[in-house]
Design a protein around this nucleic acid. Structure first.
Lengths: 229, 229
DNA sequence: TAGATTGTTAATCGATTAACAATC
DNA sequence: TAGATTGTTAATCGATTAACAATC
């Protein structure tokens, strides 16, 4: 039932159709709800009301209920949502059937941190390889993942059905990866570098810019102080 | 001229007033424009049209012009914006007069990466100290910044007029920092952990959740594939 | 001048919240 | 039952885009 919407252009997103009717923000929150639900389950909590989920995330209960409505989930009891059932339901929305392979480009501190975070998780997302130019890293494993030379990017990615890449290399060399990423058939990019990269349509890009976010925090701190005075 | 707007509640933001009329998204883009302009200046480019800036960032020229309108910038020539002048103008909006001190909580890979990125930059934002529990790190410098024990957080932050903190410690221990952060008088938090933290009003929080963003990228990749079939 | 560019208002689109009927 | 909770529509709020007059 996906609706084909041509010519849309989200911020940081080069893509010519929006797959179906679940809003971007709802997708983000679903991921967050799921993690919370798994935490609660681990604590022994089996049911949560919409206002429980809302309080934990600092949002309103209406928003929680509306998000669940949008994905077609309903609890049919008034005793709160069954955490286990909801986790699975969200999984049906978010997860793909097969494991999604991810390649990390640039095994510096950030690349390493994220890889470490992901290895050994029960997720449908799996970081399966990394690329770097450092001879000390290439040919070894880092954070549990084999590191190849960046020159082998296109072949390795194609051979192993990798669809997503995590750009964590120095900003200055990021643009040089644009062409290999397209050539290798990558479909999703999480861009940690501080450079806007204009990928062609059909590649989903999420920018993740630490500098900008810090400047934003600083701005609001400054302005709030100004108001107080 | 800031307008006091009571009772607003942004996602991931506990705050009871919005300082003035510049939208959040515009603030983000201003930070990005500035970085681009500095890059272009370094390359010898002195003037840029709105569509130049737009192309670089993958947005429309109208949006660029509207953002500049909102901050009251105008070029009064039709030869494009003077990069140098615009950089300074954006600086007047975004930057505070004094340096904003930042403390990093958790000097693991992410904390180290960000700190390294920031040290030695000509910015109004300065990472001045870090906190950890690891005896190998405490008492030494890491990425050019002194590392103190987390127990000294409140005193050190107060002594040194630190207003912003960067939460890069393991998710499981993040909630334990909530109280010290409030007590120390921190006003802005950039939260790298995957836990929603409910800070009291008056503290601006920006969540920066890698897992959620990766899941989002994976979702859109999956959905786009589904549409293609 | 004609064409390109700018600044700004109005219209549209998307996301959140208010209101409320239905249900346990 | 009365109170709490849910699901959903309508209203509001915020952000982007379309349209256009003014200017070089």
């Amino acid at each position: 039932m996906p609706i084909f919407v041509d010519g849309k252009n989200f911020k940081g997103m080069s893509i010519n159709f929006v797959p179906n009717n679940i809003p971007e923000k709802t997708i983000e929150r679903l991921s967050e709800y799921r993690r919370t639900l798994l935490n609660e389950l681990a604590k022994g909590v089996t049911h949560l009301y919409s206002h429980n989920l809302a309080n934990i995330h600092g949002i309103t209960a209406v928003q929680v209920r509306r998000d669940l409505m949008l994905i077609g989930f309903s609890s049919d009891t008034k005793r709160g949502y069954d955490a286990r059932v909801l986790v699975d339901f969200i999984g049906n929305i978010l997860d793909s059937e097969q494991v999604m392979n991810i390649a990390v480009i640039g095994m510096g501190h950030i690349g390493h941190a994220v890889t470490q975070h992901f290895t050994g998780k029960r997720s449908k997302l799996k970081i399966t390889m990394a690329f770097d130019v450092d001879p000390d890293k290439v040919g070894r494993k880092s954070a549990g993942v084999p590191v190849y030379h960046i020159d082998d990017f296109v072949t390795k990615v194609r051979e192993n059905n990798v669809k997503i890449t995590l750009l964590s290399l120095p900003t200055s060399v990021a643009p040089s990866m644009l062409r290999p990423i397209v050539e290798a058939g990558i479909k999703g990019v999480l861009n940690f570098t501080s450079t806007p990269l204009n990928f062609p349509e059909g590649i989903y890009v999420e920018d993740y810019d630490i500098i900008t976010l810090l400047e934003k925090v600083a701005y609001f701190v400054k302005e709030c102080e100004a108001v107080r005075k």
